[in-house]
Amino acid sequence: MSFPNIYTHRRVAETAAKPCDICFRLSSSVLITPDNKDFFYICPSHLKDAGFCTPKIDQAAIEARKKKELEEEIERVKKEYEEKKKKKEEKDKKDKKGDKDEDKKDGKDEKEKDKDKSETKEDSKPTSPKPEEEEPRVFELKPTFYQQRINKKRQMEIAKRNRERMQDPSFFPSVPKSLP
């Protein structure tokens, strides 16, 4: 009975929290194997402990996330450029029309320029804050803890097998029928 030393971190509902296998405090974090053969509750602080487990980094997922962020940034810059270009064209059109009525609209133009400046300041701010760094989801236990998990699983199987044997009536010896 062996299972891979790869555990996925999952969260359960707070109402389903059970004691941590290490420190026995209530925890809603669970480490589970991909084939669901083994699982145990663990505190999130233990996951950060280098003596307990090491995170397995998925390079493909990191590269895909970086590529997606880069594409979003390019799209945002393109939109900003188009907006600035549009505003500049509108301003040029107003300037051509404004040459005739320049003396009348001086006060209004200054107000519009102030508005444009405030809008560009607002546009330059990032629309969405950077997502905080995700915690690793896949872990590999250190050899001593992994061996403890294997031993515990074996003991559970042995206990289950013994319970089944005890329920079988042929397990116990029968009473002797002949005289000694």
Rank of each mutant, 00 (worst) to 15 (best):
D109E: 10
N162V: 14
D21C: 07
K67S: 07
H46E: 00
P169N: 00
K88W: 06
D101P: 00
K94L: 15
R149T: 12
I62Q: 05
Y146K: 07
L47T: 04
K37H: 12
P19I: 02
K152T: 13
K88V: 02
K91W: 15
K48W: 01
K100V: 15
K37L: 04
S45E: 04
H46P: 01
P44E: 03
P44I: 02
K68R: 15
L26Y: 12
R163H: 04
K177R: 09
T127F: 02
A17T: 04
D38P: 00
D101V: 08
L179K: 13
Q155I: 04
K79P: 00
K105H: 15
K79M: 06
K66G: 00
G98C: 09
G107E: 14
T8N: 14
K104E: 15
K142I: 03
D168M: 02
P4V: 15
S178L: 12
V175I: 14
K104A: 03
L141P: 05
K125C: 02
S2Y: 09
K84I: 14
E63C: 03
L31W: 07
E132M: 07
G98Q: 09
R161W: 09
C53W: 04
F3A: 01
Q148S: 06
D116K: 12
R76S: 10
D103R: 04
K125P: 00
S29T: 13
R65W: 08
I32Q: 00
S28V: 01
F145I: 01
P173M: 03
E132L: 01
S174M: 04
R137M: 12
M1V: 13
K68H: 10
A61W: 03
I6L: 14
I74D: 07
T54V: 07
K115S: 06
C43P: 02
A60S: 12
R10V: 01
G107H: 08
I158T: 06
V12C: 13
K68D: 14
R76V: 03
T15I: 09
Q148F: 10
M166H: 03
K117G: 00
E69W: 06
P143T: 01
E71L: 14
D58M: 06
K84S: 11
V77M: 10
S29I: 12
S174I: 01
E14T: 01
E89T: 04
Q59I: 02
K88Q: 10
F39Y: 11
R161L: 14
Q59H: 13
R161S: 08
Q147M: 05
E122H: 06
T33G: 02
K79W: 08
